[in-house]
Amino acid sequence: MLDRTFAALADPTRRALLARLSSQHDLTVSELAQPFAMSLPAVMKHLDVLSGAGLITRTKTGRSVACRLAAGPMEDAMQWLSRYQRFWSEQLEQLAAYVEEDAWPTNPVSRSGAASTRRPRKSMPRGRNRRTS
């Protein structure tokens, strides 16, 4: 079910539909489709994906279909993400502690003052090589 949740959330239109449902409960399909520059059947396909992922529920009253946000799959996704957030937070804290340690020399030696060393020449010069006969 987690795969379906993330697949549904991958599309910006579906995220916008969920955002509208989070601020206004029980919107009809027509009300949900209103701000989008797409056909009603296209919006219905997005709603089918959201419904299949369990992110919305639909209730039919007469000819009108109302949609409502369902929080369960989002809570499961948040629990899954929070485990990895803890992991990466700990890793970043360890990295920060390592960087903040006094591991750097107080008077670093500048390489620009040191004598430069030349690279040994290659046997052939760079570029196109022509053979002379």
Rank of each mutant, 00 (worst) to 15 (best):
V29A: 03
L17E: 00
S123A: 11
A114H: 03
T59E: 10
G72Q: 07
A16Q: 11
S22F: 04
A96W: 10
A115S: 09
S89Q: 15
A97V: 11
A103M: 04
K45W: 00
R111A: 09
Q79L: 15
A103R: 11
S39F: 04
R20G: 05
S22K: 08
Q85N: 13
K60W: 05
P125A: 12
T61L: 10
T57W: 01
A53F: 06
V99R: 07
Q94Y: 10
R119N: 11
L21C: 03
A71E: 09
D102I: 05
I56M: 02
Q91A: 14
E100T: 13
W88T: 06
Q91G: 03
M74H: 11
R126Y: 09
G62V: 04
M44I: 07
Q24E: 09
A19T: 05
T106M: 04
T59S: 07
R63G: 03
M74W: 07
P73Y: 04
R58N: 01
V43I: 15
F36T: 06
D48Y: 00
V109E: 14
L50Y: 02
L92Y: 12
E93L: 14
L21S: 02
V65Y: 01
E75V: 14
Q34G: 12
S30Y: 05
Q79C: 12
M74C: 08
R126F: 10
L81Q: 13
R68Y: 00
S51L: 01
E93G: 11
S23T: 10
S23E: 05
R15W: 01
Q24W: 03
M38L: 14
Q85D: 13
W80P: 02
R63L: 09
P108N: 07
P41W: 01
